[in-house]
Simulated scan of single mutants.
Amino acid sequence: MKHHISWKVSLLTAMVSAAFSVSAAVVPENARLAEVQKLVRGNDAEVATLDPANAEGLPEMHVLRDLFEGLVIQDKDGNVIPGVAKSWSTEDNKTFTFYLREDAKWSNGDPVTAHDFVYSIKRAADPSFASANGWYLKLTKIKNIQSIIDGKASLDSLGVRALDNHTLQYELENQVPYFVAMTAHSSMMPVHKEALAEYVDKWTRPGNMVSNGAFTLENWVINERIELIRNQQYWDNDNTVLNQVTYIPFESQTAAMNRFATGEVDITSDVPTAMAPKLKKEQPESYTVVPLLCTYYYAFNTTKAPLMIRVFARRCLIRSCGMLLQTVLLR
C-alpha cells in the first residue's frame, strides 16, 4: 500500500535548508540566510507525550527527533547515518557493536555514554513501565527482550551491555541485517537517568528535561505551542543553523493551511485533499509530495451486532476489504 503525505515549505525554510529533518543542515554555498533563524512548524496534533519510550504518533516523532538523538539518524533522503554512534560493526548480524562519540553530551553538559543507552532500553523493556512501543522492541530480536516484556525473564538477562563508556553492544536472538536502522526509532533513544530520578513523571516538562539532540525544550503550552531552542551542548552544534523551532498543533488541515498562507507558519505536514491540485499548480516551489512508508490496520468489533450474530455481514465485510486491497495494489 502506498500512502502520501504533503509537506509545504516556505521560502524562508527553503533558503536555510532548515534542520527540521533529523540531520544537521547543509547550507548551499550561495544561499542567503534569513536574519532570524526561527522555524514555525504546523504539527498534525497536540503531542500525547515527549517520552521517547512511549511516543507512537507522527506529531510526537516530529518533536522528539529535534530533542533526542539515537545511535543513528536519517538524512533528508532517508539514508541511515551516524548519530551518537560514530561507527558500528557486526560480523554475523547477531552481535552489533556501536562506538559512541566522545564529544556527545546531554544538554546539561553531562557526557552521553553507553550506560545511558543500556539504562534507556532496559527502562523501555521493563514490564512495569509498559511501554507503548513494546511491540516494536520485540521486533528488534534483542536477546530475551520478548520474554522480559512479557514478564517471563529478568531485565538483567537483556542482550545489551556497555563494554566501556563509549562502546555499546547488542546481542540478538536471530540475524537482523537491518538492526542498525531500527535503532533510530524513538523507543531506542537515550534518556537522562538522573533527570528521571529527580523529576519522576514530570521530567518531560520545560526546565526539567535533559536531552541530547540539536534542540532543548524551552516552553510547552498544551494545545497551543511547543518551543525549542538550540542546544549549545550538541556535538554537531556548529552545523546547526536554526536557533529556535516552534511547533503549533492543528487538528484541522484547513486551519493549518490558512496559517501557512498568512505567513504565521513556515511549514506544515498536511493539506486538505481538495486544495492539493491548486497548490501544486500555483505554489510549485512550496508544495512537495513525498512518500511515507507505513502500515494501516482496521479492527472490527465482532462482539456486537450485526457482526456478532450475522455470518453474512461478516462475509460481506471480508469480501469488501479484499476488493479494496486489490484496488490499492493494482494502482
Rank of each mutant, 00 (worst) to 15 (best):
D75Q: 06
F300V: 14
N93K: 02
K152D: 14
M257A: 15
T254H: 01
A18M: 11
T327H: 11
E194T: 13
V200G: 11
A276F: 08
E69M: 09
M1T: 09
V40N: 00
A104K: 01
R315W: 11
S107A: 13
D150R: 02
D270G: 10
G78A: 08
G109N: 04
N93H: 08
D51F: 07
L163M: 10
N208M: 05
K143I: 00
A214P: 01
W88N: 02
V72Y: 12
I73C: 10
T113I: 03
T167R: 10
M188W: 01
T327P: 05
E60Y: 07
M61F: 05
A305V: 10
V27S: 11
E56F: 09
L228V: 06
L329D: 09
F300W: 11
E29A: 11
W7H: 14
T167A: 11
D51A: 14
D266M: 04
T13D: 15
M275Y: 13
Y119F: 12
N258G: 00
N93G: 04
V36G: 02
P127M: 02
P291C: 09
N79S: 13
V328Y: 14
S17L: 07
F68G: 06
T302S: 10
K8E: 01
L33C: 04
V328M: 14
G134F: 05
H4Q: 12
A18N: 13
E194P: 02
D164F: 03
T254V: 14
L172N: 05
S17Q: 14
V27G: 07
M308K: 15
D164I: 06
F20M: 08
N212A: 03
M189K: 07
V9I: 13
N212R: 08
N243G: 15
P284L: 01
A19V: 09
A45P: 00
D201I: 08
E56A: 09
I267N: 08
R65V: 05
G322H: 08
G322W: 04
S187D: 02
S107Y: 00
T204C: 08
S10R: 03
